[in-house]
Simulated scan of single mutants.
Amino acid sequence: MSFRELAAARYSCKKYDPTPVDPGDLEYVLSCGRLAPTAKNLQEQRVYVLAGRTDLDKVDSITPCRYGAPVVLLVAWDTENVFTYPGGKRDSGAEDASIVATHLMLAAAECGLGSCWVNFFDPAEAKEAFGLPENEEVLMLLDLGHPAADGGPLANHGLRKPLEETVVRR
Rank of each mutant, 00 (worst) to 15 (best):
C13I: 14
Y16H: 03
Y16Q: 02
Y16L: 07
D17C: 01
P20I: 01
P23E: 13
G24M: 08
D25I: 01
L26C: 10
E27V: 11
E27W: 02
E27L: 13
V29W: 02
S31D: 14
S31N: 08
S31F: 03
C32W: 03
G33R: 12
R34M: 12
L35G: 02
T38S: 15
T38H: 08
A39Q: 11
K40T: 12
L42C: 07
Q43P: 00
E44M: 03
Q45V: 02
R46V: 15
V47S: 05
Y48D: 05
Y48M: 13
A51S: 15
G52F: 07
R53K: 13
T54G: 10
T54D: 15
D55P: 00
L56H: 13
L56T: 03
D57M: 13
S61E: 06
I62V: 15
I62M: 13
R66P: 03
R66Y: 02
Y67S: 05
G68W: 04
G68M: 08
A69K: 10
P70V: 08
V72L: 05
L74P: 09
V75E: 10
A76Q: 11
T79S: 10
T79F: 05
E80V: 06
F83N: 09
T84V: 15
Y85R: 05
P86E: 15
G87T: 01
G87F: 05
A94W: 01
E95Q: 14
E95K: 02
D96N: 14
S98T: 15
V100F: 00
A101P: 09
A101E: 05
T102E: 14
L104H: 05
M105Y: 10
M105E: 15
L106A: 12
L106Y: 10
A107M: 08
A108H: 05
A109W: 07
E110Q: 13
L113G: 09
G114C: 01
G114Q: 11
G114R: 00
G114D: 04
S115K: 12
W117N: 06
V118Y: 03
F120R: 10
F121P: 10
F121C: 06
P123N: 09
A124W: 02
E125L: 15
A126C: 09
A126K: 05
K127V: 03
K127E: 01
A129H: 05
E134K: 09
E134W: 08
E136P: 00
L139E: 02
L142G: 14
L144I: 15
G145Y: 01
H146A: 04
H146G: 01
A148R: 00
A148N: 03
A149R: 00
G151P: 04
G152S: 06
L154I: 13
A155Q: 07
H157L: 11
